[in-house]
Amino acid sequence: MKSDERRVMDVCDLRVLVTAGASGIGRAIAGAFAEAGSLVHITDIDEAAIQRALSEDTRLSASVGDASNAADVDRAITDVGGKWDGLDVLISNVGIAGPTGPVAAYADEDVDRTIDVNLKSHFYFAKRCVPLLKASPTPSILALSSVAGRLGYPYRAPYAATKWAIVGMVKSLAPELGPDGIRVNAILPGVVSGPRMEDVIAERAIILGIGIEQMRQAYLERISLRRMVDAEDVANLALFLSSPLARNISGQAISVDGNVEYL
């Protein structure tokens, strides 16, 4: 690759699959890639959200399904294989907040669901996408973890455990798939502004017996830059890591979080 090519964050014409791409961070990532000229297919369990996304951006295509259900994942990959003869980027973004509370209070089914959605889905998509990625000249996998994947997170243990596990998956797949030219990295968003974070703040405020605004300020005080990040900040990092500028970055867990000091 020529030196001038390495300076260009070019993702035009990349074939990109974004899981949980109909809302939140996934929607921001899908929109950023489409805006940059990539071909983007999204999956999501929420059919109404998918319809909204498709109506807002006609450049997207989509599959409806539960990422924690192997049969639904198979259907999504069949859809992708029917559209393209390969895949350049898998952005494995599926995740739920999981239960908030002390460990003794967790319902078993809530823990099981958190593991199924936040961890199993990443393995399901990686397993099925690797053959498609091998047909690409510039293949990569981006797995969305969290700043909770490098820090302890009291009252959110199931969520944090799955996010640490995603980093372990990335650290394992990078050397496994590296000989095939497939780069594998994890993105660790910090405190992302939006409805989901507001729900987490409200739930934790109840547990700690403090006001919601006090809880919100407590989160901000733990961030060096004293501000939350936006979904677009995460999308920008995904664009970079999928571009020629990042051609030698693999096996890394990269935070975009304003430097969260503790949770």
Rank of each mutant, 00 (worst) to 15 (best):
L173I: 13
G190F: 02
P179R: 03
A143G: 04
D66Y: 10
Q51I: 08
I45P: 11
D57C: 14
Y106D: 13
S242P: 09
D108P: 10
R204G: 05
L220W: 09
A36W: 01
P154R: 06
L90E: 10
C12S: 15
I187C: 10
D44I: 07
A235N: 07
D233V: 05
V11W: 01
R216M: 14
V167C: 09
R27V: 01
D257L: 09
G86H: 02
A148I: 01
I207H: 01
I141T: 00
G37E: 14
A235P: 09
R59C: 07
Q217E: 15
L144Y: 05
Q51H: 11
D233E: 09
D72W: 00
P154Q: 07
G181A: 12
V11K: 06
V8P: 04
G178A: 12
A70Q: 03
V200N: 07
S61E: 05
N259S: 14
M197W: 04
V73T: 09
F125S: 09
H41S: 13
C12G: 15
A218D: 08
E5D: 12
E213P: 04
S23I: 02
P158M: 05
L39C: 11
M215F: 11
K134Q: 07
A67Y: 01
S242A: 08
I77W: 00
G251C: 10
I50Y: 07
G21W: 00
Y106A: 12
P179G: 07
I201S: 12
E261D: 15
P158I: 00
M9Y: 05
M9G: 10
Q217A: 13
G81N: 02
D10H: 05
M215S: 12
I223L: 14
A48L: 06
A107V: 13
I166C: 05
G168C: 08
S68C: 03
D112S: 08
L60M: 09
M228Q: 15
V200T: 02
N259I: 07
S92C: 14
I45K: 13
P189D: 01
S121L: 04
A97S: 13
S23T: 08
Y155W: 01
G194Y: 01
G26C: 02
W84M: 02
E35A: 04
L177Y: 11
R216N: 12
S3H: 08
Y124A: 02
R216G: 13
R227E: 15
A253C: 08
D116F: 09
I91C: 11
A126H: 01
I249H: 11
A53N: 05
I182S: 06
C129K: 03
R75F: 05
R247S: 15
S250R: 11
A253W: 00
